[in-house]
Design a protein around this nucleic acid. Sequence first.
DNA 1: CTTGATGCAAAGGATTTGCACAAAT
DNA 2: ATTTGTGCAAATCCTTTGCATCAAG
Lengths: 157, 157
Amino acid sequence: MENDLIMFKNLLLQNGYKFTSSRKHILKAILNSGTHLSAKEICEKVKEYHLGLATVYRALKLFNKLGIVKEITLSDRSYYELKLFSKNPLHIHFKCFKCNSIIDIDSQDLNLDYLKLSKKAETENNVEIYDSNIMFVGLCSKCKGEVKCQDEQNLEE
Amino acid sequence: MENDLIMFKNLLLQNGYKFTSSRKHILKAILNSGTHLSAKEICEKVKEYHLGLATVYRALKLFNKLGIVKEITLSDRSYYELKLFSKNPLHIHFKCFKCNSIIDIDSQDLNLDYLKLSKKAETENNVEIYDSNIMFVGLCSKCKGEVKCQDEQNLEE
DNA sequence: CTTGATGCAAAGGATTTGCACAAAT
DNA sequence: ATTTGTGCAAATCCTTTGCATCAAG
């Protein structure tokens, strides 16, 4: 079992939760994907083990509570991505309204600015910030020039 | 009729949409509130005119398309707030996970930083940013010290 | 063994849609 | 007159829950 998985196992056990095979498979799916997945997508990735959607949701909720994954909500769906032990614990998301793709904006520079902004907001407003989300919406580099696009729906409407 | 309303009327007409009394009432409700409202809350505010929820949703979707309102999504609900002609077209939201209140963080300073961040992301990633959302999650100043809170649900769980 | 976890199906809540009717241009 | 908008209820989609059963510690 990979190192990360062992850490997650301990984290669960230390908090009084069981490290079941369902949870292991779900965790592995998220670990291996390296991106944000919806509950349904995760269910797809582990379908060989026949886990119910409800189980996936319950596991994700738990992982979110333990800080293992981060939930990002978008219009009407939620996506989950690795948060703990991730190489990029903090990052900015960009959503293209034309092709609907979501990309991670990762630059040392931007993340630093982001962090600074967060700290400033914290002190200026006398609040305690535990988490934050930034989502930019616009046209991705591919769609900027194109007239046609993989998802025409948003254009026509 | 207020000035803003006339502008909205023209905006609708110029785009081939009708300026119906339903739309007027919904628009006024948003204008007068000065904050973010859910579809249901808006429906409540205009209940004297007996508009169906579906009508409210349809109007909000249209207003969003025309850039009149901004849709912000949170966990599983959507909220709508004035965007066009608003005094604060861009601002940072903060959500307290204890009392669930959402507050607008408005400071010249922070918004400037935010804008800079957005511009930098745009050039660095070769994308076109049309809109953006920042949401911080944590403890508001009221809840920071308190043990008890108006919404206990989130504590117990 | 004991308690927490799972599967299934049913419930829930937000949003959308089909259709006949009403209202704006 | 036409075309777009509305109301209602039904349909959808994502997510949660109840309950009997199963498996981890």
